[in-house]
Simulated scan of single mutants.
Amino acid sequence: MLGVAIAITLMVVDHRRHDSLQQLRDTVAIVNYPIQLAAETPGDFIKWTSESISNYNHLLDENRRLNKENLLLQGGMQRFKALEEENQLLRDQLGASLRVGERVTLAEMTKVDLSPYRQQIWINRGSNAGVFTGQAVIDAHAIMGQVIEVTPFRSAILLITDTLHSIPVQVLRTGLRTVAKGTGRINNLELPYLPRSADVRVGDLLVSSGLGGRYPSDYPVARITSVGRDPNGATTIAAAPLARLAVDEQVMLVWSLDEKLQAVPVDEPAEESADEPVNEPADEPADEAEQGESEE
C-alpha cells in the first residue's frame, strides 16, 4: 500500500508541477542509461554475430558457385581459343569438322601421385556418376589425361606426362600430326616421331587431333618449348603441358557429342577393365598404332 500511495503522490505532483520533477527524471535517466545499455549489448552482439555469419556463409556459397561457373566456361572456351588462333593464321582446316559443345562434369581431386614412374590423380567421381574407362579429363586450360580405373565412387586419371601415356596431337600452325609422349616429369612432354624436316617452331601450339577416339579433337595440349638435335643427329622436340597438372583442385570429365567418342563397352578389347590393376596402361595398344601411323 505504501508503494501505491507514493506512486499516486508522485503522479499528482508531476501532473501539477511538471518542472519540479524534471531534474529528478533526468538524473534517473542518466543513472539508468548504462544499465540499459549493458542489458541490450548482449542481444545486439548476438544479432550482429548471427547476421555476420549468415552474410559470410552466403558469400562463400556465392564464391563457390561463381568459381564452378567460371571453370566450366573456361573449359568450354578452350576450343574457341584454338579456332581463334587458327583463324588468325588464315587457315581453314577445321571447317565443318569442328564440333564445339562437349558436355562436361565437374569433379574434385582427392589424391595425387607424381612419382617418376607413375603420374596419376584420383577424383571423387566414379561409375555412379557415369564415368567410364578411357574418358578424357581436362581442366580450365587444357587436356590433363584419361580415366584408367573406375570404382563406384572414385576414378584414377593417368596424366599425359606419365611415361606410359601417349596422345595424338596436331601442330595448330601447320596441321602436322604426331604423338606426344609423357616423360615422367610434370612439366615436360616429348615428340619423338617427327622427321628432321618437320616444320616445328618453339611456341607452336599442340592440340588434340582426335585420332584413336580417345580424346576429342582441337583441345589444347601443350606448347613447344625446345627444338634441337641429340648427339646422334636425331631431332629432339620438347613441349610443356598447358594444363595445371596436379595443381587445380577441380577437373572436368568430357562427354563428346560425337558418337564415336562415347563410352566403349567394358568387354571391348581396347578398354581395360576397371577391376584390373592400375599399373597396366589403359591405351597402350592404341598408342602403338598411332605411333606407327605417325612414323609412316
Rank of each mutant, 00 (worst) to 15 (best):
R25D: 07
F45C: 07
R16F: 12
P269R: 06
G130L: 00
L242Y: 08
V147Q: 04
L176Y: 11
S209L: 02
G213H: 00
T225Q: 14
I46P: 03
G75Q: 06
V112L: 07
A142D: 07
A39W: 03
T27Q: 14
G212E: 00
L98K: 10
E290V: 09
D19N: 15
A107W: 02
E86G: 00
R154P: 01
L21H: 05
E85S: 11
L176N: 10
Y33H: 15
L89A: 06
S217D: 08
Q135D: 07
R91L: 04
V112E: 06
L257E: 06
T41K: 15
H141T: 00
S50I: 02
G3R: 15
L164A: 12
G101S: 04
R118K: 13
L205Y: 01
E259D: 09
T27S: 14
D218N: 14
E190D: 04
A180M: 03
D218K: 12
S97N: 12
P277R: 00
I8N: 10
L37N: 11
T105I: 10
Q170I: 04
Q74D: 10
A136E: 07
A7I: 15
A38P: 05
I160V: 15
A282I: 06
I160G: 00
T27W: 13
S197P: 02
T178K: 10
V207N: 02
E296W: 06
